[in-house]
């Protein structure tokens, strides 16, 4: 469909909405370019260990976090660079953490899988599949206990749904009516295992029935759809203190981690290409161009600006010092 063939809009989007859409585009581009740079740095040996990239899934973090208050909690699995950036940790501090530097958001002690910024309500980066799901409910328990009306969004992948902690936590969150959103990013594969090969119930939203919980199935390649669904869930949590399970269907373009292949034994190159055709950034950029909000020149300028920001983050990380040797023994216990 071309712009000229379209039915004229009943009303143009409000300036606030346009501003939000531009912000979302910028945030998705930031994640995309940040992750591309992280991949490069990993290949150069500047980042070690496991590094799980978010390319393809940007709309999920950006759409969901746009629906939150600044003081709301976000807690994630180990594929959390995107959420960390959008919750307000600077690209410098995230990249420096990936580089293991003292200036990283976890002082170089956590790495890619353990990004933290407690002051901004970014409660980690957790490395055991599904292990942080009860932590998300616990944060919500604390908010409800203290009456702060904060909402917690707990991100996890579809593979975590097969973990006992998922089921135990959804049950308790529902019994205790906790203000938490369980946001399952269904990217179809737990490492190299297709979800339908290991899950009896493949529509994850259906699990909500077992726990008498509200749920929604969401197109995760469309940032606006993610935003709208999360807003409804946030409202339910904040106003009624009811939990929600969101199944957000998305796709990761990269391998499970940097040490894994993009495709091969478990998925075809064609499948990956087919999914890339649904790219969330192109989708939003296309819409904004159609709406006349942004033209190609402005898009290119935005892209260049973000490239520069990410380049600067790499330089910052490169130039930052390693932690002092004495840091080995700090932060084990507090006084």
């Amino acid at each position: 469909m071309t712009a000229t063939a379209r039915t004229p809009r009943q009303s143009a989007p409000s300036p606030q909405l346009t501003e939000l859409h531009l912000k979302m585009l910028r945030q998705m581009l930031l994640i995309r370019h940040f992750e591309e740079k992280a991949a490069e740095a990993y290949a150069l040996g500047k980042i070690g260990g496991f590094c799980h990239l978010y390319i393809g899934q940007e709309a999920v973090a950006v759409g969901a976090l746009a629906a939150l208050r600044d003081d709301d909690y976000v807690i994630c699995s180990y594929r959390e660079h995107g959420q960390a950036l959008i919750k307000g940790i600077s690209a410098n501090a995230v990249m420096a953490e990936l580089f293991g530097k003292a200036t990283g958001c976890s002082k170089g002690k956590g790495g890619s899988m353990h990004l933290f910024d407690a002051k901004r309500g970014f409660m980690g980066g957790h490395g055991i599949v599904g292990g942080h799901i009860p932590l998300g409910a616990g944060l919500a328990f604390a908010s409800k206990y203290k009456g702060t009306e904060q909402v917690t969004v707990c991100f996890f992948g579809e593979a975590a749904v097969n973990i006992g902690a998922f089921h135990e936590t959804l049950n308790m969150a529902s019994v205790w009516k906790l203000p938490v959103i369980f946001l399952c990013e269904n990217n179809r594969y737990g490492m190299g295992t297709a979800f339908e090969r290991v899950a009896a119930v493949t529509d994850i939203v259906e699990h909500a029935c077992s726990y008498d919980m509200a749920a929604e199935l969401v197109d995760g390649m469309n940032v606006l759809t993610v935003y709208d669904a999360t807003r409804r869930a946030v409202e339910r949590a904040r106003k009624q203190s009811h939990p929600t399970l969101l199944e957000v269907r998305t796709y990761r373009y990269m391998g499970h981690s940097m040490s894994d292949p993009l495709h091969g034994v478990y998925r075809t190159k064609d499948e990956v290409e087919e999914q890339k055709a649904r790219d969330p950034i192109s989708h939003l950029a296309g819409k904004l161009k159609e709406d006349g909000v942004i033209d190609q020149a402005a898009l290119d300028a935005l892209d260049a600006e973000i490239h520069a920001e990410v380049e600067a983050a790499v330089k910052f990380a490169d130039d930052s010092p390693d932690p002092e040797p004495g840091e080995l023994f700090t932060d084990v216990l507090v006084d």
């Binding site: 009860p134 206990y145 936590t169």
Partner: peptide, 20 residues
């Protein structure tokens, strides 16, 4: 709690992260 040691221990950890 229900009989769910893993779950309620984790909810406790999360509550401690939240200041309790």
């Amino acid at each position: 709690t229900p009989i769910a040691e893993l779950g309620f221990a984790g909810i406790g950890v999360g509550a401690a992260m939240g200041g309790l």
